[in-house]
Design a protein around this nucleic acid. Structure first.
Length: 493
DNA sequence: AAAAAAC
């Protein structure tokens, strides 16, 4: 409570009275001292109270509810093989599939020394393995709402014995139109239960949801929801829209960024940028809602393993995702929703590390910038970024930088312009081994995946014994990206 | 104006 000196150095996880099997897992995870939200939430959840939690993701929120939930379920943990002895007792709902997967991995690791079973269900993947797991029985279920309801309908999930419900990123779920699904799910749960609601903001809608479904909740607020971490250096770069791709490459190179998430506002934009970056020698892949779940998971896993330099993402990756030691986030586009800015840059500077949030701002994004500054209540450092002329080949005798020395020279300059896109930032790859293609080809030829991407997909295909059933006759390029967009939509709508 | 999520 003492607001003067929070000294976590003296605090340990031992103080909560958690079972040795849980503490062992916590230690193995490398955690020694509880974060502020953990220190506040764990005792309250252990006491069985409802919680309204406002916490930035990355503050240790997942453990703050997972650990006490495991503790509360522990006395009922059955080692029996009978599914009937393993009803769903705790249900954790998240807005995105990746977040569900991540929370599930955390829960799994915290519960690994106990007899409690956990599982995760979300859409976009085969239902059968999920159904099989549910049939065998799990005490802790992590889910996205749609697929959970699907399982309920198929009678593979029974929510009649849920004692604890967690709504993670509740504001996001409402934003995404999950309210009807949430209401349906809530109606399937026992009235007598504990409910924990976590949200970045306490909007009117969230308060209404809480008033309807929570019982005298304890409010826990650690960091002000609209604040941004002080360990994240935020810089805005003024740059022409057409120079953005070059700017991303330049920032990655100049700052020697080992890994970076680059956020775009649209799925197509993300795919395009990933392709452009690859062309400029940055190992990149896209993650967004138009890619298959398999591709999304592969992209994220490869990124976490460090095999990919730039993960180009839509806001599907803005919230909650925990990537260790991510040194920087780049906003290729400024988000339309200022709150998303806070979430995006929250992907870096996690667990006390420092991070850079680098945002590109074109002249037509000034309003978004103003909105963000208003939300975070402070002006951002705005710098002008001069994007170098596209890097040229070593063996080229003259720098393409237009020297304007004579009039006979600009013939090449005009040739370069021919057919160049308005966003002409990718005229020349700067790696010698890159074959020089006419700019036109770049737009007309179907996407060609990088050798690294091809290898990854082949590995994955070999590993998962071809689970694709419908429409599996796509070429590799199509499997890889939503990249090779048809030039003209001849398709049926 | 765009993103996400069940089939």
């Amino acid at each position: 409570m003492s607001d003067t000196a929070v000294t976590p150095s003296t605090a340990t996880f031992d103080q909560f009275g958690l079972a040795p099997d849980i503490l062992k897992a916590v230690k193995e995870s490398g955690y020694t001292t509880p974060t502020p939200i953990q220190a506040q939430a764990i005792p309250v959840v252990l006491a069985g109270r409802d919680v309204m939690g406002a916490a930035q993701t990355g503050t240790g929120k997942t453990a703050s509810f997972s650990l006490p939930i495991i503790q509360r379920l522990l006395p009922q943990a059955s080692t029996s093989a009978s599914p009937a002895r393993h009803p769903v007792r705790a249900l954790i709902l998240t807005p995105t599939r990746e977040l569900a997967d991540q929370v599930a991995a955390n829960v799994q690791s915290y519960a690994k020394h106990t007899a409690l079973r956990s599982a995760v269900v979300f859409g976009g993947v085969d239902m059968n393995p999920q159904s099989e797991q549910l049939r065998r029985g799990v005490e802790i279920l992590i889910a996205t709402p749609g697929r959970l309801l699907d399982h309920v309908q198929q009678k593979t999930a029974n929510l009649g014995q849920v004692q604890i419900l967690v709504l993670d990123e509740a504001d996001r779920m409402l934003d995404m139109g999950f309210l009807p699904d949430l209401q349906r799910i809530l109606n399937l749960l026992p009235k007598e239960r504990q409910t924990l609601l976590f949200s970045a903001t306490f909007s009117g809608e969230i308060k209404k949801l809480a008033a309807t479904y929570l019982r005298s909740p304890q409010t826990i607020e650690v960091a002000r929801s609209n604040s941004t971490a002080t360990n994240v250096t935020q810089i805005v770069f003024e740059v022409a829209e057409g120079d953005k791709t070059g700017a991303v490459v330049q920032l990655i190179r100049e700052r020697s960024l080992k890994q970076v998430i680059v956020f775009c506002n649209s799925k197509i934009g993300a795919s395009r940028l990933a392709r452009s970056l690859e062309r400029d020698g940055v190992v990149a892949t896209a993650i967004h809602g138009d890619r298959t779940q398999n591709e999304r998971m592969q992209a994220l896993d490869a990124f976490k393993r460090g095999e990919i330099e730039a993960l180009v993402a839509t806001d599907v990756a803005a919230r909650g995702l925990d990537i260790a030691e991510l040194p920087a986030v780049i906003n290729f586009d400024l988000p339309f929703n200022a709150e998303d800015y806070v979430h995006r840059i929250g992907r870096t500077g996690r667990a006390g590390a420092s991070g850079d949030a680098l945002s590109l701002c074109s002249p037509n994004e000034r309003k978004q910038l103003a909105d963000i500054e208003k939300l975070i209540k402070r002006p951002l450092d705005v710098q002008r970024l001069t994007v170098d002329a596209p890097v040229r080949h070593h063996h080229e005798e003259r720098a393409p930088r237009r020297e304007r020395s004579g009039d006979g020279r600009d013939e090449r300059g005009s040739r370069r312009r021919t057919g160049a896109p308005s966003s002409g930032s990718f005229e020349r790859p700067h790696h010698h081994h890159h074959r020089a293609q006419p700019v036109d080809d770049f737009f007309l030829k179907p996407y060609e995946p990088s050798p690294a991407s091809v290898r990854k997909v082949e590995e994955a295909a070999a590993a998962s014994a071809a689970p694709q059933k419908s429409g599996s006759k796509q070429p590799l390029a199509a499997l890889l990206g939503g990249f090779g967009m048809p030039r003209k939509s001849t398709s049926s709508s």
